[in-house]
Computed example of a mutant assay.
Amino acid sequence: MTLLTVRAAAGASRGILATDTGEWPCALGRGGLTDAKREGDGATPIGRFPLRRLFYRPDREPPPATALPTLPLAENLGWCDDPRASADYNRLVRLPFAPGHERMWRDDGLYDLVVELGYNDAPPVPGLGSAIFLHLARPDWGPTEGCVAMARDDLLAVLAGAGASSEIDVARR
Rank of each mutant, 00 (worst) to 15 (best):
A98I: 05
V115F: 09
R84F: 04
A162E: 08
P139Y: 03
A74F: 03
L136H: 04
T70M: 10
F133I: 04
R57M: 00
D121V: 01
V125L: 11
G78T: 05
G78Y: 01
P58C: 13
D88C: 07
F55K: 13
A9M: 04
L17I: 15
P64S: 13
C26A: 13
G142S: 13
F97D: 09
G47E: 10
H135D: 08
T34P: 11
A12Q: 12
L71F: 14
G11Y: 15
M104N: 13
R152P: 06
P83H: 05
H135P: 06
A164Y: 00
A137Y: 04
M1E: 15
A149D: 09
W141L: 12
R173T: 13
L113Q: 14
A85Y: 02
A149P: 00
L3S: 09
R53M: 11
P126A: 01
D20N: 03
E145R: 00
P83S: 06
D107V: 06
P143F: 08
A122N: 10
P96L: 02
T44P: 10
D112K: 15
E23W: 03
R52G: 01
L51H: 10
I16H: 09
P83K: 09
W105Y: 06
T21P: 02
W105S: 11
E23Q: 15
P69H: 13
L71Q: 13
S130H: 02
R103G: 09
C80H: 07
A65M: 12
T144Y: 03
L95W: 00
A98T: 07
R173A: 15
E116Y: 03
D59F: 15
G40S: 09
A151I: 03
L117N: 03
L17K: 04
R138V: 04
P83A: 04
A137G: 09
L113E: 05
A10G: 15
A36Y: 00
A87L: 10
E23F: 04
S86R: 15
W105Q: 10
A171S: 14
T144Q: 07
R38P: 01
L3Y: 05
P143N: 09
G29K: 03
E61C: 15
E145W: 00
A27V: 02
P69C: 08
A151T: 04
E75K: 07
L54S: 10
A43M: 12
A160K: 06
P143E: 11
A160L: 02
P124V: 02
A151D: 14
T66G: 12
I46W: 01
R91W: 05
R103N: 14
R84S: 12
L159F: 03
D140T: 06
A149V: 05
A36N: 05
G129K: 00
C26M: 06
L4Y: 11
R57P: 00
F133Y: 14
G100F: 08
G31S: 08
G22E: 15
M104G: 13
A122M: 05
G129M: 01
A137V: 14
G129Q: 01
R38V: 11
A164T: 06
D121A: 07
A157H: 00
P72F: 10
G47P: 10
L71C: 05
L77H: 09
K37P: 04
Y89R: 07
S130P: 08
T44Y: 00
D82G: 03
A10F: 13
G11P: 10
G47Q: 13
G118Y: 09
P25I: 14
Y111P: 10
G109F: 10
D107C: 08
D140H: 01
M1I: 02
A151C: 07
A162G: 05
R14N: 08
G78H: 02
D121S: 09
